[in-house]
């Protein structure tokens, strides 16, 4: 029964998605959502333990909202950068795969970090091995692993470290 606790954050998220989907919310819809969420809570399925890393606190919620805005800004900035590279006649790219190190411990935090890196144009997470991420970078401008870590990872890490630990 201890495992049931791990699934609570997941069920809350599923219920939140349901609520967004059926807005404006009425009593029958609310009842259906609650019933479905409880079924989700009882049926066991593999992989749900990952969500046990989540712990609620107001500081984390505040950091999560700040992270969303930081992330959107990073996406817009790097989109413009890649757009410039695509349009410029010399095609100024220097691609390769770099290895960077992350401080994040929880697997969910690493998942969100890898997905954020992949979503920002110019970088794709190719592989992940414990605390090292292998990232395809469209324009390598440093030979140093620490500098590459600072440029790609640390901006996101600052927020994710507080949210996921």
């Amino acid at each position: 029964m201890n495992k049931l606790r791990f699934r609570v954050p997941l069920v809350i998220m599923v219920f939140g998605l349901w609520a967004i989907l059926v807005l404006p919310i009425t009593t029958p819809k609310l009842i259906i959502g609650v019933v479905l969420s409880v079924i989700f809570l009882i049926i066991p399925f593999p992989g749900a333990e990952v969500y046990g890393d989540l712990k609620f606190s107001f500081k984390k919620v505040a950091y999560f909202i700040a992270y969303i805005f930081y992330f959107l800004w990073a996406v817009v900035k790097s989109n413009l950068d890649v757009a410039f590279r695509v349009l410029s006649p010399q095609l100024p790219i220097n691609p390769g795969i770099v290895k960077v190190k992350t401080k994040l411990k929880s697997s969910l935090g690493r998942l969100v970090l890898a997905n954020s890196i992949t979503l920002t144009p110019g970088t794709i997470t190719v592989d992940i091995e414990n605390e090292f991420l292998y990232i395809h970078w469209i324009n390598i401008d440093t030979e140093n692993q620490e500098l590459a870590t600072g440029k790609i990872v640390q901006g996101f890490e600052k927020y994710l470290e507080v949210i996921f630990g």
């Binding site: 790219i93 220097n94 691609p95 390769g96 795969i97 770099v98 290895k99 890898a114 997905n115 992949t118 794709i124 997470t125 190719v126 592989d127 292998y134 395809h136 390598i140 401008d141 440093t142 030979e143």
Partner: peptide, 29 residues
């Protein structure tokens, strides 16, 4: 996109280009 990139890398597709640049491109993986 991660699945595509990973599959491509394990197929042996080389990410390094033959071109002049100040910083030597590399493939850590």
């Amino acid at each position: 996109s991660h699945a595509l990139a990973r599959a491509a890398h394990f197929m042996g597709i080389n990410p390094i280009l033959d071109r002049e640049s100040e910083i030597s491109p590399r493939d850590d993986l």
